[in-house]
Design a protein around this nucleic acid. Structure first.
Lengths: 127, 127, 127, 127
DNA sequence: GTGGTCTAGACCACA
DNA sequence: GTGGTCTAGACCACG
């Protein structure tokens, strides 16, 4: 379900956070959909349950998931997101990255192209 | 010369890499300009020489600096940069970041605004 | 009758305890008034009867309810409440919370304002 | 240094969070003061290092601490606190608690008395 | 069966 | 020496 690289310098739990976040953003995972249980995903990815838990906890704090003891973890609604603090931070990161890309030759057309691609991805599947 | 935040959770060597990269991108440091010696910068920032060394090494690997034994470290020409491996990677990162931002409500206008800002920064000082 | 949030990280039985306690404090439920039976409330809230049972048990222990076998659960008189053990504990909690709020910038005026609001709530409806 | 109750229903890491927060609020721990290292506190309290870590991480996220890899954990400045979201939540909690206390007989004088005590505590030692 | 906490102990990254 | 990550495996709380 999620491809991990155990050899990467990036922590496993962080890779998992990114992958799940991506799935939510791309609407592969829909609001209120249940995620695999900690134990299931743990054995599927051959990763310790604690590590999965940590990823889920992280995503909960960032507002992408909500967790119910005894029931499972679920995708949060966007509107419930604490947003805004994270959003401003994101914009700063974006500006730095774009400045660097411009230095390396990125044109306005390149950027608009990337934007279009991103738009398509976040539109999700029809259903 | 470079402002470091010892309280940040980002490692000092990484902060330094970012700051120098930024200075190069913003054309505060020009191609072939010499950087301060490890010792100098070390005492100026009151940071362990190893940490400075590591930052320079990192920047050299990324192609932003070149070093001449016995002379020092210098800003690389853009053309000398290890082609577009880094650039392609950057574009992938950019797309991920933009997708996330769109999910959190970023509009096309926001993006173009950020682009304009970045353009101004990378234009460098007149001289 | 009682609004529960299944998405909350607070256990359902605990939410129920809080809601009922609140209704008693705000005098929406009056002393000696009968509460809905476990079965009724269970089906109304679509919640496991065990969960309701547990909430009632908890409230009985805290002295907010009394239960008569074969008849049901009833709101206790304040005077019947297990004296001031709970009250002293509450005052300790209150002091901790207020100290934290002061640290974060709470003023005396803020506190008095909050007190006024709480007074209005506990006055109950006229009837 | 910090008194824990391993038999309590409240998780150890949470108890520790509360105790440390209290120490910071009461200015027993001053801004930029270093906290005991994870290992030290771990052996002192005979609690697993992971548990201590978790408490420190929690406090960092809440803005009470900052952590530097290779150096240690330190008390944050109040001004750097993300505040406000937490503060509003705190006020809601406070109102609920005060309403309950009023129901159990709390008077305005009681409250002002508690406020005075809290003020004294948060003033810290003179130095 | 689900998430949450905890221990014991290993290994890595940073300064 | 410091924090950070991870594993293996146990036990508890919730519904």
């Amino acid at each position: 379900m999620f491809q991990l690289d155990v050899r990467s310098r990036k922590p496993i739990y962080e890779q998992l956070v990114d992958k799940i976040k991506e799935a939510i953003i791309h609407k592969i995972l829909k609001p209120d959909e249940q995620l695999p249980s900690v134990r299931m995903l743990s054995s599927e990815l051959t990763v310790n349950p604690n590590t999965i838990q940590r990823a889920y906890r992280e995503l909960e704090q960032q507002g992408y998931l909500y967790s119910i003891k005894g029931k499972g973890n679920f995708v949060a609604q966007i509107e419930q997101m604490p947003a805004n603090l994270a959003f401003d931070e994101l914009k700063t990161d974006l500006q730095k990255l774009i400045a660097e890309a411009i230095y390396l030759g990125l044109t306005k057309e390149d950027l608009l192209h990337i934007y279009q691609e991103a738009m398509i991805q976040t539109r999700g599947e029809k259903n």
